[in-house]
Design a protein around this nucleic acid. Structure first.
Lengths: 160, 160
DNA sequence: GAATTTTCGATGCACCGACATGGATCGGAA
DNA sequence: TTCCGATCCATGTCGGTGCATCGAAAATTC
């Protein structure tokens, strides 16, 4: 969300502003741009998906995760995706209602469940990819060359 | 939000996964980490603020923007901060209710308003800074050296 | 200067997310 | 065994956000 306009040196994007205490100016600039760029990227992806009349971004992550990892339990998905338990719970029931996943009782643990993709779920994931990848391309590839993308990925790895 | 767990090469964070179509692998990696790092940074800041019983992150941006730019109109704030109009509208009325800003009719344009900080608003912004800067420090300075922060800021500027 | 278009800000509605809690089950300790 | 704490998932509540749209007031056009 938010994100300001320039004012300092080169170009747009800035966020903090002050010099009240510790962080150095460059730190604030990097922080600001990180939040800004992240938020923009996210919105771009959501916009593309919506424009195509497709499900929300979160669904893609879940569909992709299950597709990749195979059927499994919500608590594992939750750890894998790094989302909140209650959030995943509701996402899965919406997706089940939409016919994209199946939720079955877990043999061996009556508390648990096994979630899997339906064929429609696999199709939906495939259908979402073009819109999603458009956003990715537009955000990353059209603005950074290959070396820069490698650099960026390296820096971001340390931050996350 | 979300963000997955590793599986590819070096370290955590990944998101897309596939190679169905266009974007190169490094692009997907960078994209994934961008969203991941952005979301983590955001959550870290929110967590700090909440822990200190302070208002949400968005308020800081608005308080800081007004403090920096002086009294002004919502539509300018909106452009400056890069947030949605309806969103700013509601944020401002909550902040007005909290006594942090004043909203006055705009002389010269009966549609518009002039928003300014109250003394309490200024204090609140100052009170939020330590918690906020803690998150910034923890996210950026403890993980990247000065050169890396400069590099990162440079890459991100292009993306945003 | 009247009519049309654009801008400014507010708001109803639905959804989503955070938070706290609940109910069921499991596992381990006594 | 019998408890008791931990784990797994669901859900009520509430506040925030996105989207569409609205009413009012400029600005533009003719």
């Amino acid at each position: 969300m938010h994100r300001h306009r320039p004012e300092l040196l080169p170009a747009p994007s800035r966020r903090i502003i002050m010099g009240m205490t510790k962080p150095a100016a460059i730190t604030l600039l990097a922080w600001d741009r990180l939040l800004d760029a992240g938020a923009r990227a996210m919105r771009a992806a959501r916009r593309e998906l919506k424009r195509a009349g497709l499900p929300p971004l979160e669904w893609y992550d879940i569909l992709a995760a299950i597709d990749r990892r195979g059927p499994g339990r919500p608590r594992d998905l939750q750890a894998y995706l790094g989302i909140e338990q209650y959030n995943l719970s509701r996402l899965l029931s919406r997706m089940e209602r939409a016919g994209l996943v199946t939720i079955m009782p877990c043999p061996g643990d009556a508390r648990g469940q096994i979630v899997d993709l339906t064929p429609a779920g696999r199709e939906q994931r495939a259908a979402m990819w073009p819109a999603y990848s458009t956003a990715i391309h537009h955000t990353m590839e059209s603005r950074l060359d290959s070396d820069e993308r490698i650099q960026l990925a390296g820096m971001l790895e340390k931050v996350a």
